[in-house]
Write a protein that binds this DNA or RNA. Structure first.
Length: 967
RNA sequence: GCGAAGGUGGCGGAACAGGCAGACGCGCUGGCCUUAGGAGCCAGUGCCGCAAGGCGUGCGGGUUCGAGUCCCGCCCUUCGCACCA
């Protein structure tokens, strides 16, 4: 028998505007006794929302509805990150004003939110492109400028020669323009920067106090990239000081050359005349390279010598100065001391260019190797080694006869080995030990390989003895010719200092600190910390952004626009050029605020990340014309209690917002210094995307049989990717809602998997949600007549076993759902729990002796539990249940812990780790270890199993299981 | 290379304090209903086996009465960062 069919459209149309009109989503801003600031990252309004966006907004709406039912006064605003390139490009291409384009999209987004039943406090709506918002973005710039935290400096920018625009770093993909694919050029321009590096330590340190996903914190940590070490001053022969940064000052004695970045300011002065041309050519090639090329050829260690030399302050060694593009001007001091024995890059560079490599840190593993050349020792060494228990293998070496490959561990063994070799060495031969010991055994004695001088001496000697060494430039190059040695020639681990003059023998743990002290005492170095984080380049040579409020005056120079003259309005122009504001003379020409003379406005707009770095503050007082935000309200409502958005913002937006918050805190405007107390990053919804080599992205619905292109029939490349308009793999919510209703889409979106994980959208999956809602609807509608007249509350004392089981399930479900929503946001498992309860209820209502008070109570509870997920159908059913008060005014159901111990449970009994029986007993007894134990041991099946065995131990876990160990 | 997350049925996933592995949903199989099914309902569904039983959470060891979960050693996938000194 089927009742009235589930008609989502009729239901959803009925309730669509209800919640909004009743004002349930309006925050009571002055009452902060039980406040909760929930925030979704605001979107960039481009085109339309797709099902993938639902992951963020539907999730948020469900959480907020739950919080409201729990009695929180929720601030849940929404706005628009409305400045940006797509609007400007659309404007240039279609000749419409970016503002009109943007607002058309905003209207579309709002329509779609409404269709989803996703509600916000729309009285607080903001758009970053509106003058009453960007006025305060400019104000923020001025405040930073006042404190010296906004400055202008020369910098290289990415420029697309085809589009004639400057591109942000994120808009350069693989060295090419993201729009037209042209190769991006570097251009030197004066750029505005925010000095975020001044906050590096605090941004790092304060991560600790945030309730954020670990991986996001780790990403920020890496991005900020603190590294501790020392700055060491090397004197060039012509008297210049060259300061290098190193994290391994303990390797100083092994620094056999210096490398400067090609852009390093000292290069010109240092370069000797004979090298000038080569250096100039190399520098030019390096600057022409894009960042991509420079890193793509990462393994090719190119470089040229300057001809200059410096003195290693540790050992007085005269070492050459090179330039190479593996050293970046933007990190550290733009110069390094190369320690090829303990740095992989320096090792490769030194080997390639024939520079000496001197080990100065002992191997922590004590491993040493020795290759005994055929004929270099008298017979009998192999036998002697075997007697001495030294590991080796013998094998032919080319056509020269049999060689020995010896592997040694530990000092004592190495000493014994050297003695044996000396005893067997043929005159005119040599043999070396490398790794944990660096020694060359000649027929007249042992020469340690411990310095550049030793390198030269040993090499000369070897060349004398063996002509084949002839072309080798260093000892290490000679050794590197032998595969057997490869893994012991270089290591980057910490360890005891060797070959390091007075500091030789300093153990690994103390090495860095000891060396720094040594340097400081001699005035040639000091402890230093460097950061990977660089200052934030905020200039964009565009139109659709907040203009930088600076005037350039020929008399007064750089002059900030006075606060009372803000905002610097974007000029209204009929058509846009490709140069942004720089194309608009009316905008540029102005008067100097200081001297009143003719001056020019700065034509840069700010990066849109500046707009979004403070928007969460504006929501507390969105229409305040006198200040960016009401500090008193901000201090009461912020930090944001729960901030939800995509991981793609894990670094930039979140780092910038933290920086600006700390800055405003330092200005004394905010009492807190972290904007987002808890962060949740939802995963993306993926869907197959099809790529045709000629026609590019093809929408899945156009794909022909056998994954072929509809236009040319070519086989398509399929990959499952995050839904995106540009890849044409989006599922439009409008169609889903048309077919199944908004509740079905909401339910599937929340049920499909853990919200933090990426998951592929499935057509079958959404049908499952649709079927569940149908069953749920039929169940409730079918029971309405029976329970309409019921007034009594359920009384567990009168329940039979089946009723008690459902009663227990009901309370367990309320507990489960409440905990999931309050804790880890496991909405998928919350929905699953409600489905379980619904399934049990469906079975229960079929019973002839079903208790109507229980049915009524269960139905009412399920409707309330489901309301945050599927608000339309629940509001409808709640109404039909005869309730006057809307759900959002109804408290969230509670649960009674006592109910959890009602009825009977089944407990498994293990014997020697295997489940051999199950006992049924009252839940109350199962909670008692002794009662449970007795019940299990008394069970006939268990007794049968125990016959002939001695019980060794019985472990009873209350409510879980009994484990019996027998012999 | 470094950092992080992850590897569980045919699929998405569950098991969040070491306690019945596979909840919930999809798919599949059989049945009912139907002129019909991309509808609905009922039953089944990790693998091997007629069964009793055995085997099962990437692989190999270990701790424990008991391991998806803890420890040691590997393999693979995804995502960040990447010549950062």
């Amino acid at each position: 028998m089927k009742g009235e069919p589930y008609d989502p459209h009729a239901i959803e149309d009925r309730w669509r505007d209800f919640w909004h009109k009743r004002g349930f989503f309006k925050a009571r801003i002055h009452d902060t006794s039980r406040k909760f600031y929930y925030l979704n990252m605001f979107p960039y309004p481009s085109g339309k929302l797709h099902a993938g966006h639902g992951r963020n907004y539907i999730l948020g709406d469900a959480i907020v509805r739950f919080l409201i039912m729990r009695g929180w006064n929720v601030l849940n605003p929404m706005g628009w990150d409305a400045f940006g390139l797509p609007a400007e490009n659309a404007a240039i291409e279609q000749g419409i004003h970016p503002r009109d384009w943007t607002w058309a999209n905003i209207r579309e987004f709002k329509r779609q939110f409404r269709a989803w039943g996703v509600e916000y406090d729309w009285d607080r709506e903001i758009a970053t492109c509106e003058p009453d918002y960007y006025k305060w973005t400019q104000w923020l710039f001025l405040k930073l400028y006042e404190r010296g935290l906004a400055y202008r400096a020369q910098g290289k920018v990415n420029h697309c020669p085809h589009c004639e625009v400057v591109l942000a770093n994120e808009q350069v993909i693989g060295g090419r323009c993201w729009r037209c694919g042209a190769e991006v050029e570097k251009r030197e321009l004066a750029q505005w920067y925010f000095k975020i590096t001044a906050y590096a330590d605090r941004l790092l340190r304060d991560l600790e106090k945030l309730d954020w996903p670990e991986h996001v914190k780790r990403m920020q940590e890496n991005w900020i990239g603190r590294s501790e070490g020392a700055e060491v001053t090397f004197k060039a022969e012509d008297g210049q000081d060259i300061v290098v940064f190193t994290t391994r000052p303990d390797t100083l004695w092994g620094a056999t050359f210096l490398v400067l970045a090609p852009e390093h300011p000292l290069v010109d002065a240092l370069t000797h005349p004979a090298h000038r041309d080569a250096v100039a050519a190399y520098r030019e090639a390096a600057t022409a390279k894009t960042e991509m090329e420079r890193t793509a050829k990462a393994l090719d260690k190119t470089g040229v010598p300057t001809g200059a030399h410096a003195v290693n302050p540790a050992n007085g060694e005269r070492i050459p100065i090179w330039i190479a593009d593996y050293v970046m001007m933007t990190y550290g001091t733009g110069a390094i001391m190369a320690v090829p024995a303990h740095d992989e890059r320096d090792f490769a560079f030194a080997l390639k260019h024939g520079l000496p490599i001197i080990p100065v840190i002992a191997r922590p593993d004590g491993l040493a190797k020795s290759f005994v050349f055929p004929g270099s020792v008298r017979s009998g060494l192999a036998e002697a080694l075997a007697r001495a228990n030294i590991a080796f293998t013998a094998g032919p070496h080319r056509d020269r006869g049999e060689a020995l490959y010896v592997t040694l561990r530990g000092e004592a063994e190495i000493d014994r080995y050297i003695d044996l070799v000396r005893a067997h060495l043929q005159p005119g031969s040599w043999c070396e030990v490398v790794g944990a010991r660096w020694a060359f055994v000649f027929d007249d004695g042992v020469v340690p390989f411990d310095s550049v001088a030793a390198d030269r001496k040993i090499l000369a000697r070897c060349k004398e003895l063996e002509p084949k060494v002839g072309d080798k430039r260093t000892v290490m190059e000679m050794l590197a010719g032998l595969d057997f040695y490869r893994d012991v020639l270089f290591h980057a681990e910490h360890g005891t200092m060797i070959h390091s003059g007075p500091l030789t023998g300093t153990p690994g743990e103390a090495a860095v600190a000891t060396t720094i002290r040594w340097l400081e005492e001699r005035g040639v170095g000091k402890a230093a910390v460097h950061w990977r984080l660089r200052d934030w380049l905020v200039s964009r040579q565009r139109y659709w952004g907040a203009p930088i409020p600076i005037v350039h005056c020929p008399e007064c120079g750089e002059v900030p626009v006075p606060e009372e003259d803000l905002p610097v309005l974007l000029p209204d122009v009929p058509t846009l050029g490709k140069q942004g504001l720089a194309d608009i003379p009316e905008f540029i020409l102005t008067r100097c605020p200081r001297c009143g003379g003719e001056a020019r406005r700065d034509t840069d707009t700010m990066d849109t990340f500046v707009d979004s770095s403070w928007y969460f503050l504006r929501y507390v007082s969105p229409s305040d014309g006198k200040r960016p935000f009401d500090p008193e309200l901000a201090n009461r409502w912020l930090p944001v209690d729960l901030y939800v958005g995509g991981v793609e913002h894990a670094i930039l937006h979140l780092l910038y917002s933290r920086f600006i918050t700390k800055f405003l805190h330092d200005l004394g405007l905010l009492a807190f210094d972290e904007p987002f107390r808890r962060l949740f990053t939802q995963g993306m919804i993926t869907y197959p995307a099809y790529w045709c080599p000629t026609h590019h992205w093809i929408s899945p619905r156009e794909v022909r049989e056998g994954d072929r292109c509809p236009k040319c029939g070519a086989p398509l490349e399929v990959s499952v990717l995050a839904m995106s308009k540009s890849k044409k793999n989006v599922v439009p919510p409008d169609e889903l809602i048309e077919r199944y209703g908004a509740d079905t889409e909401r339910l599937y979106t929340l049920f499909m998997g853990p919200p933090e994980r990426d998951i592929e959208w499935s057509e079958e999956g959404i049908r499952g949600a649709w079927r569940f809602l149908n069953r749920f609807w039929q169940l409730v509608i079918g029971e309405l007549p029976r329970i309409a007249a019921v007034r009594r509350e359920p009384d567990p004392a009168r329940f039979d076993a089946a009723a008690l089981a459902l009663w227990r399930k009901l309370h367990a479900t309320v507990q489960k759902v409440t905990e999931e929503l309050e804790g880890r946001l496991g909405l998928n498992t919350a929905v699953a729990a409600i489905m379980e309860l619904t399934n049990e209820l469906s079975a229960y209502v079929e019973r002839s002796d079903a208790d109507l008070t229980l049915i009524r109570q269960t139905i009412r509870t399920v409707v309330l539990l489901l309301a945050p997920f599927v608000p339309f159908v629940c509001e409808e059913l709640w109404h039909r249940l005869g309730e006057e008060k809307p759900i959002l005014e109804t408290p969230w159901p509670g649960y009674d812990p006592a109910a959890l111990s009602e009825g009977e449970v089944e407990i498994p009994v293990q014997i020697n780790g295997r489940v051999r029986a199950r006992v049924r007993l009252p839940a109350r007894d199962a909670a008692d270890a002794e009662a449970l134990k007795a019940m299990a041991l008394g069970d006939p099946t268990v007794q049968e199993r125990l016959r002939g065995h001695e019980v060794d131990r019985v472990i009873a876990v209350p409510g879980k299981l009994v484990s019996i160990v027998v012999r």
